[in-house]
């Protein structure tokens, strides 16, 4: 029972990342009709926003400590971050410690800007081209972006730890009067789940309860009619691309403390996220979220030793098996509109 509870938590946690990325993918597909293979790269770029801010906060003034030597026997250069020199040791250290949450503020405008440039500069030229062209150009863009990141930051993972206040784990077992240290779950992963829920809720609320959102939804349903009403739907869709990029970026920035960012992390999530979109239903926002959590939970259960013992290798293929079953039995996906991908 404990194991099942923990795997559900794991599934929700994994599902949070899948759902956030898939949500952005679906937003772009639903509004612009573009299959964006660079979406994983946007997730990666978000993570590197945290890395960049961390590096900025750690920009240091160098002083020589003649009492110590470096690895070559020369006097040791001691680095003191400017923020500590300016704001004092304690406050400066606290700013650096809270680098990842602070990066959220940094990430939103950066990612909206990147999304805007991507859409206006490249992707808008492919709206009327076949999906195969869109996939090729966005996949190429993803490779360019990840190679750029590798050039500037290297190939190895870069640690971006959570603030000290969120290190450690929450003990569900002790809370429920059971043995301590059996049902525990890291604070930051719980925060990630909560954060994902807030972002997903905010995106839905924005689309559901604002005039802008209403126009976008109308445009998703019938772009031509909305255009005939004199509404500049293209401009709104460009903004939606920026929002989708920001959602992917936020998913990435908060993911940094879970797994150290590296240039390839976007590709690791990309294929899974597409499977999530297909299972959820192309263009369906609730479907993307539902499928994200569903596949996250299934993947977690498939990784249990008892399950692997029963069906060896199931942990590596479960998501694709589900995708095949869904595509065979319900091509439009769990919550896709009737007719989509069924012809």
């Amino acid at each position: 029972m404990d194991a099942i509870f923990l795997q559900i938590l794991n599934g929700l946690d994994k599902g949070s990342a899948y759902a956030l990325i898939a949500l952005g993918l679906t937003l772009i597909f639903g509004t612009l009709g573009v299959v964006n293979f660079a979406h994983g790269a946007l997730f990666m770029l978000g993570s590197f926003c945290a890395v960049t801010l961390n590096k900025i906060l750690n920009l240091s003034v160098e002083t020589i400590d003649p009492t110590k030597t470096d690895f070559l026997g020369n006097p040791l250069k001691v680095k003191t971050p400017y923020v500590q020199a300016w704001f004092g040791d304690d406050f400066g250290a606290a700013i650096i410690d809270w680098g990842v949450p602070l990066a959220i503020l940094f990430t939103i405008p950066v990612m909206i800007g990147i999304g805007f440039i991507m859409e206006r500069g490249l992707i808008k030229h492919f709206y009327k081209r076949p999906h195969a062209d869109q996939i090729l150009v966005t996949f190429g863009l993803a490779i360019v972006l990840q190679e750029l990141i590798k050039y500037f930051f290297g190939a190895n993972p870069i640690p971006t730890p959570a603030p000290d206040a969120f290190k450690g784990s929450f003990d569900f077992g002790a809370m429920l009067g059971m043995d301590p240290n059996v049902i525990i779950y890291p604070y930051w992963r719980l925060i990630y789940f909560g954060f994902a829920a807030v972002i997903i809720g905010a995106v839905f609320a924005f689309l559901q309860f604002t005039t802008f959102g209403m126009v976008v939804r109308a445009g998703m349903a019938d772009r031509e009619t909305v255009g005939l009403l004199g509404i500049n739907i293209d401009k709104r869709f460009t903004i939606m691309f920026g929002i989708a990029a920001a959602v992917a970026g936020l998913a990435g920035v908060m993911y940094g403390p879970i797994n150290s960012p590296n240039y390839h992390m976007g590709m690791d999530f990309l294929v899974l996220s597409f499977v999530v979109v297909v299972v959820g239903g192309m263009g369906s926002l609730p479907g993307a979220v539902l499928a994200g959590f569903l596949l996250g939970i299934l993947e977690s259960f498939a990784s249990m030793t008892q399950v692997i013992d029963l069906i060896p290798g199931i942990n590596q293929i479960i998501i694709y098996v589900v995708a095949i079953i869904i595509l065979l039995t319900r091509p439009r996906g769990l919550m896709g509109r009737k007719g989509v991908m069924e012809d």
Binding site: D2, A3, L9, N259, D268, M304
Partner: peptide, 19 residues
Amino acid sequence: VKTPLSQTDFSSYITPVLQ
């Protein structure tokens, strides 16, 4: 327990250790 080389999040392999 064998883990896939492509695995990035090991949480579902770590939690069984707790049990």
